[in-house]
């Protein structure tokens, strides 16, 4: 498969603050690629560099095999970009926003007359087309922003946290829309702070503090991770948790709602679990191995980086 985005050794600094540290990334034609990481990981900076909105300080970036630093104007006409914040005109109606972006990208009238009904059907925004964008709900705003980014049939979509702050139902609908856009042949690079959305991507890049933690298909990322996760529940969780944190053989002990996730080296797991069961018998813990989620893996990689470079932790 051909790479639609190629990023090599990109560094980016805002003043003396480093946002990206030697990042490399490939996005293949036709895939949904997830850029996953918390706030301030560098996702927005990377996406802005890809759109030619920020100067490249060092490294090389090409999109559609074109050098972004030189050909950003040509690249911009072939991609659709949805910034992190809702960036449409709130005082214009749904239809006016769509028409504006159609004109901005010089979409011909015939093409537009064909495209708009398609987008309405797909986003189910037709009944709201005369409503001002500012009066739409959060989920509908994101659908409109997506429609505006799609009006010129881009070959590549770059979406910066499109589901951030959107309700779960709308999030699900939004991902279904992305899947159907992908079927139409468009490649998608999407960033998200939600780890569960990683499973919906063909490939993901985990990014933390301007560094890539891992980049592969979700299945392979899980397979290459040589650790296991145990779920711990106990009626006396409050007493148990501080005890477990003290044990150094446990890589990490994270709370997920009412349960604790223990990350252990795969080869030591059996013996550690045995020890724990006898030692904390009084708290009646329930220990059970579970499939690791992307969040477990992300946190484990993140802690590994923090231990290596404590100065950058935080």
């Amino acid at each position: 498969m051909q790479d639609i985005i190629q990023v090599r050794d990109i560094m980016h600094q805002y003043g003396d603050k480093t946002a990206l540290e030697k990042i490399s990334l490939q996005v293949s034609q036709g895939e949904i690629h997830g850029l996953i990481g918390p706030d301030s990981a560098g996702k927005t900076t990377l996406m802005r560099i890809l759109c030619g909105l920020l100067n490249i300080q060092s490294g090389t970036v090409s999109v559609f095999d074109l050098d972004v630093s030189k050909k950003f104007k040509e690249i911009r006409s072939r991609l659709g970009y949805m910034p992190q914040r809702f960036s449409l005109y709130q005082d214009l109606s749904v239809e006016e926003n769509l028409l504006f972006f159609a004109r901005l990208f010089s979409v011909t009238v015939q093409e537009r007359n064909q495209r708009l009904p398609e987008l309405y059907a797909f986003s189910r925004l037709e009944q709201f087309k005369s409503r001002r964008a500012g009066a739409l709900s959060g989920g509908m705003k994101q659908k409109l922003a997506l429609s505006c980014a799609l009006v010129h049939r881009p070959e590549l979509l770059i979406l910066d946290e499109p589901t951030y702050g959107v309700d779960p139902v709308s999030r699900q609908e939004f991902w279904q829309m992305l899947k159907s856009i992908q079927k139409g042949g468009t490649s998608i690079l999407v960033s998200t702070p939600y780890m569960d959305e990683a499973e919906l991507c063909d490939r993901v890049t985990l990014i933390y503090n301007g560094k890539v933690l891992a980049s592969d298909t979700p299945t392979k990322i899980k397979a290459n991770w040589n650790k296991v996760v145990f779920r711990v529940t106990s009626p006396e969780m409050k007493e148990l948790e501080p005890e477990l944190v003290k044990i150094i053989e446990i890589e990490s002990c994270q709370r997920f709602g009412n349960e604790l996730h223990l990350v252990l080296q795969a080869d030591e797991a059996a013996s550690i679990i045995n020890q724990l069961e006898t030692r904390f018998d009084e708290y009646m813990p329930m220990l059970e191995q579970i499939q690791p989620g992307m969040e477990d893996i992300y946190l484990s990689y993140m802690q590994a980086v923090q231990h290596k470079e404590p100065s950058h932790a935080g």
């Binding site: 802005r48 759109c51 030619g52 909105l53 104007k73 911009r76 006409s77 991609l79 970009y81 949805m82 910034p83 992190q84 914040r85 809702f86 960036s87 449409l88 005109y89 709130q90 972006f101 901005l104 990208f105 010089s106």
Partner: peptide, 13 residues
């Protein structure tokens, strides 16, 4: 409002 960022990513001069 960030709308400039949005319209900059277009063929506009």
């Amino acid at each position: 409002l960030g709308t400039l960022e949005q319209i900059l990513v277009s063929p506009i001069r």
